[in-house]
Computed example of a mutant assay.
Amino acid sequence: MTTPPETYLPDVTYFGLVDELLNVAGSFDPRSRVIELLGEIANVWPESCHSDRD
Rank of each mutant, 00 (worst) to 15 (best):
A25F: 08
V34A: 09
C49M: 13
G16M: 01
N43D: 13
L22K: 12
D19C: 02
R31S: 11
L21S: 02
I35K: 11
S27C: 15
N23Q: 15
V12S: 07
E6D: 14
C49T: 11
A25G: 14
D19A: 09
L9F: 07
D29P: 01
R33D: 14
M1T: 11
Y14E: 01
T3F: 08
L37V: 04
G39E: 10
D29I: 12
F28R: 10
I35S: 10
I35Q: 10
W45E: 15
G26Y: 04
H50Q: 04
P10Q: 08
P10D: 07
E20H: 08
V12K: 06
F28H: 15
L17I: 02
Y8K: 15
E36P: 01
T13E: 08
T3P: 02
L17N: 00
D19I: 00
W45P: 01
L9W: 00
T2W: 06
T7D: 04
W45C: 07
E20Y: 03
R53I: 07
L17P: 01
T2M: 06
N43F: 10
Y8Q: 15
G39V: 07
L38H: 01
T2E: 09
E36V: 08
E36L: 08
T3E: 10
S51F: 05
I35M: 10
I35Y: 10
D19E: 13
P4E: 03
N23Y: 05
T7G: 00
T2Q: 14
P46V: 05
P10A: 11
I35T: 12
V18W: 02
T13F: 00
V18R: 07
D52E: 11
E6G: 07
P30T: 07
F28N: 13
P10I: 01
E47C: 04
G26V: 07
D19P: 02
D19Y: 03
D54W: 13
P10H: 04
V44I: 14
T13I: 14
F28A: 14
L37D: 00
L9M: 01
T2P: 09
R31W: 10
L22W: 09
D29T: 15
N43C: 13
N23S: 14
T3R: 09
G16R: 03
T7N: 05
L21R: 00
P10W: 00
F28V: 15
I41T: 15
E36Y: 05
N43Q: 14
S32W: 12
T13N: 05
C49Y: 13
D52F: 03
G39W: 05
V18D: 04
D11T: 11
F28D: 10
L21P: 01
V18Y: 03
F15W: 13
G39I: 08
R33F: 02
D11A: 14
L22E: 13
D54N: 07
D11K: 10
P30K: 06
A42G: 13
P30I: 08
C49Q: 09
M1D: 09
A42N: 05
L21K: 01
V34F: 01
T2N: 13
S32Q: 11
S48A: 09
F15A: 00
P4D: 03
E40T: 14
A25M: 11
F15L: 04
L21Q: 03
Y8C: 06
S48V: 08
N43I: 08
V44R: 04
S32C: 09
S48T: 10
E20C: 02
D54T: 06
G16K: 00
W45I: 11
S32K: 15
V12C: 04
D19F: 05
